[in-house]
Every structure is written in structure tokens, then in C-alpha cells.
Simulated scan of single mutants.
Amino acid sequence: MQPEYVQLLTPEGERVQHPDHAIEVTPAQLRALYRSMVLARRADAEGVTLQRQGELGLWPSLLGQEAAQIGSASAVRDDDHVFPSYRDHGVVLARGLDPLHIFRMFRGVSHGGWDPAEHNIHLYTLVIGSQVLHATGYAMATESDGAESAVIAYFGDGATSQGDVSEAFNFAAVYNAPVVFFCQNNQWAISEPTQRQSRVPLHRRADGFGFPGIRVDGNDVLACLAVTRAALDRARSGQGPTLIEAYTYRMGAHTTSDDPSRYRDPEELRDWAAKDPISRLRKHLERERFADDGFFAEADEDGERLALRLRNSVRSMPSPDLSEFFDVTYAGAHPLVAEERDGFLDYQASFAEAEH
């Protein structure tokens, strides 16, 4: 039995209407969404390959979640602020950042990845759920400053079991914060299925805190765009937070250190593969004759060019001097950090002395 959710594009690529979430998109916009999803998937696949080759320490794959990320991020305005989790590579691309920033972080040559102020997207958070609390505080601050922007926080279904997320929901509700909580329910919190985490659909968590929750087909890029756009507009107009549950599926492993075959039924994966978000939009573009074979080939070629650039750049990255990490621990100088740096430098120098 299918769950009830907002859907504007069926797995067969047919446009359907929803009474509360109508959206008008041009053929050019549809092609742009398709291309963005292709680039996100190809960059993600390159991350998996590079980790397997020993070039990256870890890689969390987004495979299957491209529509949820590209659709929602495409609804975000330039002056809005984004707080991602650690799997939101599509969101990073949609915000205009070079994905190479992500690769630097997972290679261990960058302390964070990028300047959050450059594109109003904050750094990846590996601590489960903590960014949701950060986003809520930021939203409360923007409202206090009189800004007309909104904040969106990305997290997974597993994070909804964290105390930080419940605290964020409560603060956002009480203070009517202009924040959208975007939960990508990919069905698995590492090896724990959603039914082991909640007895009700996750979007209904919002009911207990006093703000609306909505479930959207997370493999439908148009529905994700429409629902997120409405929630962000609602936040900016002073109506407070919204919880969006994007019902999707993690087709890859939790990270490259995970083996999903140990806990996941292969039949489940086959069922979800038939709902693939990229092939769904391609079917629609072909059905409506909005794109031809040349366009699809060009999108694939763009993905290959991106992958090649990422591959070559990662392999040629110089390893930073370890002492540099002391310089970026705090925004300014700190006496304890300086003491630790001096101790490290003395220790490092002792090896050179021993060689002589």
C-alpha cells in the first residue's frame, strides 16, 4: 500500500495535479532540474569510486535521493540559509558551490570545506541532528534582525530520534521561527528501518509541537520543489516552521564502510529502483518531447567532465602541513592552542633530529 503524499510526477513520467501544490515549470526549467540531478549522481558515483581507490577516507552516497535534494534546494532563494547534513551533495551543487569542496573534506585536507557566507550554505555536520538545532537558532536570529529570509535544515529519518531535533522543533514552534525542516526519509538509519524508529509517519511528529507537517514523494523532483517553495514562503511570511518528510530511498550504502546486503532485502531495492527519480523525469521529458537524445547525451557528457575534473583534482591535492590545523581551530589566536601547536612542532622536529 502506497503512503499518502504529494505527488506531481508519477514513476511513469506522467504529470498529475494536486489541489494544494500546483506548480508551473517551463521545459527549460525541467531540463535544468534533470541536468542537476545527473551531475549530482555522477559526482556522487565518483566519490564512491575514489574512496574505494583509497583517495578519500569515507563517502556517504546520495544515490536515489537526487530529486529530494535538487527539488528542495531549487526552491531556496539566494538570501535564505541552508544547513545540510553529510549526504547532501546535490544541495551543495544546487547552491552553486564547487563539489570539490566536499571531496577536500572527505580526503581530510580541509577543516570544514567552504566559506558558509559565500553561498549561505553552512558546513556539513557529521554529528547526527545537531545542524537542526543550529538552523533553528539561526532562524530565530534572522527574524530578530528583521530579515525577510528563511532557513532550511536537512536531516535524515534517523536524526528524528535525536534529542537535538526534538529540541529544535520545540524552539521553532514556540518562537515561530522561519525555518523549514526537510527530512529525507530514505527508509534506513544505517541498518535500522523506519518502522523501528517511529510508530507513525515522521511528518506527523510536527503535530505534537504545533506546526504543520507534510509528506512528499521524495523521488518526484517537481513535488519536492513545490512543497518546499510553499513551506519557505510560509516561513518568510511569519507563519513559522514546517516539517517536510520526503519519502525516498537510499539505493546505496549508508557510507562506504557499510554493507547494506547484510540487512536489506534485494527485492526492496528492485522495487525502489523502478521509482528512480532521474529516469522518472527523463520519461516525462521524452513523453512531452521537451528533450531529445542530444540533450540527454550532453547531460551525461557534462557529468563525465565533472567526474574527470574531480578525479584529477583529488589525486593531485597536496597534503597540508599538519601544523595548519592549529590555525583554524578558532577564529583568532588562543593561548592553549598556541601551546599545543608549539608542543606538536617540537615533537615533529624531534624526528628530524633523530635522523641526523
Rank of each mutant, 00 (worst) to 15 (best):
E4M: 10
E288T: 14
V25C: 00
C224P: 02
D78K: 13
D115V: 06
E143K: 15
S316N: 10
P320Q: 08
A333K: 13
G213N: 04
L345E: 15
L50W: 04
F181Q: 07
E298K: 02
R229F: 05
G47K: 01
A331F: 10
A206W: 01
F290K: 03
N219Y: 03
R305I: 14
A153L: 08
P116F: 10
Q17N: 15
S350P: 05
R250W: 07
Q2A: 10
Y263C: 06
E12R: 15
P27W: 01
E118V: 15
S130P: 10
P60Q: 13
Q53G: 04
N176V: 14
V314I: 09
D217R: 04
A168D: 01
M140W: 14
V127L: 09
L97H: 02
I70S: 00
R264D: 04
L9S: 02
A352C: 00
A230I: 04
A246Y: 02
F209P: 02
F290I: 06
R205A: 11
E324F: 12
R35S: 06
A159C: 07
L281W: 04
L345D: 12
P320I: 08
A67M: 10
Q29L: 05
Q348T: 12
Y86G: 06
S198Y: 03
V151S: 06
R287C: 01
A274T: 06
D44S: 06
H111L: 07
L269H: 15
V337C: 08
G343E: 15
V337T: 15
L56I: 10
L126P: 11
G146R: 10
R305P: 07
S149G: 07
A177Y: 00
H284E: 04
V82D: 00
R104C: 04
A139G: 09
I70E: 01
V179C: 03
Q51F: 05
H89E: 10
S323Q: 12
V314Q: 00
V76Q: 05
E167Y: 13
P277N: 03
V91S: 01
R41M: 08
